[in-house]
Simulated scan of single mutants.
Amino acid sequence: MFEENPPSRYFTRLAHPEDSQETSTAVSHVLRDQENTGHVPADNSGSFASSGDLPANPTSPQNHLANLKLLMARQKAEYESKIASLEQRNRELQSEIKGMHSKLGQQRKWYSLVEMKMRNAERAKEDAERRNEMLQKEMEEFFETFGGINKWK
Results as ranks from 00 to 15, higher is better:
M1I: 02
M1D: 06
M1Q: 06
F2H: 12
E3L: 03
E3I: 03
E4T: 04
N5W: 09
P6L: 03
P6F: 03
P7K: 00
P7F: 03
S8Q: 05
R9L: 04
R9D: 01
Y10W: 03
F11A: 02
R13Q: 02
R13P: 01
H16W: 02
P17T: 07
E18N: 08
E18D: 10
E18I: 13
D19T: 02
D19P: 00
Q21P: 04
Q21L: 15
T25D: 10
A26Y: 04
V27G: 00
S28W: 05
S28N: 06
V30Q: 08
L31T: 07
L31C: 05
L31W: 02
L31N: 06
L31M: 11
D33T: 01
Q34I: 01
Q34G: 02
Q34D: 03
Q34S: 02
Q34V: 02
N36E: 11
G38C: 02
G38M: 05
P41Y: 04
P41M: 00
A42C: 07
A42L: 09
S45E: 07
S45R: 06
S45L: 01
G46I: 00
G46T: 00
G46V: 00
S47H: 08
S47Q: 11
S51E: 15
S51Y: 12
G52Y: 03
N57H: 14
N57R: 14
N57S: 15
P58Q: 10
S60N: 14
P61V: 10
N63Y: 15
H64V: 12
A66P: 09
L70R: 13
L71E: 07
M72N: 14
A73K: 00
R74S: 11
R74C: 11
K76V: 01
E78K: 02
E78V: 03
E78W: 08
E78Y: 07
Y79H: 13
E80S: 11
S81P: 05
S81C: 07
K82F: 12
A84E: 15
S85L: 12
S85P: 07
L86H: 12
L86E: 14
E87I: 06
E87K: 14
Q88A: 14
N90H: 10
R91E: 14
Q94T: 15
S95M: 11
I97R: 08
K98C: 00
K98N: 01
G99C: 04
G99S: 06
M100T: 08
S102H: 10
S102M: 10
K103E: 15
L104W: 09
L104F: 13
Q106P: 09
Q106V: 11
Q106G: 13
R108I: 09
W110Q: 15
W110P: 04
W110H: 11
W110N: 13
Y111I: 12
S112L: 14
V114N: 02
E115S: 05
M116V: 05
M118L: 07
R119E: 11
R119N: 03
N120Y: 06
R123F: 05
K125S: 06
K125H: 07
D127I: 01
E129V: 02
R130P: 01
N132G: 01
M134A: 06
L135E: 08
Q136M: 09
Q136L: 11
K137H: 13
K137W: 09
E138F: 10
E138W: 09
E138C: 13
M139A: 08
E140Y: 15
E141V: 14
F142C: 06
F143G: 03
F146T: 15
G148T: 05
I149F: 13
N150V: 09
K151F: 09
K151T: 11
K151P: 04
W152Q: 15
K153Q: 11
